[in-house]
Design a protein around this nucleic acid. Structure first.
Length: 253
DNA sequence: ATGGCTATGTAGCATAGA
């Protein structure tokens, strides 16, 4: 089984790349973030022609998440249970017996922004909810754009990023909170190349200069982590014309 | 070097991303 997550930064723009990538990689399920498409504009026909079923929760301009899977996603839940959020950031479903949680964690903008406080509150609610979910589902995966670089080795220039949004102690503590309730960072279950990142700024030739951050993750419950055989980042997608600024992340079982 | 891109909404720029 192959699970993946990709922040597409507009599904409309990235649809041809997504369809190519699905044909090549043939994941069993892929979680998309920043679809930026309202549900009535979701390209369901194209996705189904590619052999995938889809569930989605979108809005225009911002946010938007979707789960695409070869088998029909079951028991779909929108959002974080018990947490009111107008922003479409979470969708969950069961695929091939695995509970799949697709998440787009808020960016936070900067430490002095209201959006940063929203991010921290959001992560607190997300973690509390996932604690309950992980007790309901032994085999559960949380995939998506976490907007947190967990450690300095996930940052191209730790000094420059020290204390900045995506790297701040409170954000890293929130990520460790997810580890603390039993999730494993699938990427770190295996030896990985130096300078492994999942996002690069569009500006400054950041990708070519390897100036990135690893902020997209696949977290696995203990039961799933034991079955995980590989985890990687598909940086080739960042070489495309008109790429997303994020690369897909993949876990194999 | 707090933005040098990119995408969106909407009609010349503003906002957001990370």
């Amino acid at each position: 089984m192959k699970l993946a997550a990709w922040n597409v930064n507009s599904l409309k723009i990235r649809l041809p790349q997504l369809l190519d990538w699905l044909a090549r990689e043939q994941p069993d399920a892929v979680c998309l973030q920043e679809t930026k498409a309202e549900d009535h504009n979701f390209p369901l026909q194209e996705v189904e022609r590619a052999g995938y079923r889809a569930v989605f929760s979108g809005q225009k301009t911002y946010n938007g998440v979707a789960i695409l899977a070869r088998e029909s996603p079951e028991a779909v839940e929108h959002g974080i249970g018990g947490f009111i959020d107008a922003q479409k950031r979470v969708i969950s479903a069961t695929v091939n017996g695995v509970r799949v949680v697709c998440a787009y964690v808020p960016n936070g903008q900067s430490l002095d922004s209201d959006k940063y406080q929203y991010k921290l509150g959001w992560l607190k609610a997300f973690t509390a909810w996932l604690h309950g979910e992980s007790q309901k589902h032994i085999r559960i995966a949380v995939l998506g754009d976490f907007n947190i670089a967990p450690e300095d080795r996930d940052v191209h220039d730790p000094k420059a990023w020290e204390g900045q949004v995506l790297c701040s102690p409170a954000e890293r503590q929130a990520f460790q909170g997810l580890i603390g309730i039993g999730f494993k960072d699938s990427f770190r279950l295996f030896d990985q190349p130096e300078k492994s990142y999942s996002w690069w700024d569009y500006r400054m030739n950041a990708f070519r200069r390897k100036m990135g951050l690893r902020i997209d993750h696949i977290l696995l419950s203990g039961g799933l982590a034991g079955d995980c055989r590989s985890s990687s980042i598909d940086i080739e997608m960042r070489r495309n014309e008109r790429p997303s600024d994020h690369a897909p992340v993949i876990a194999g079982f």
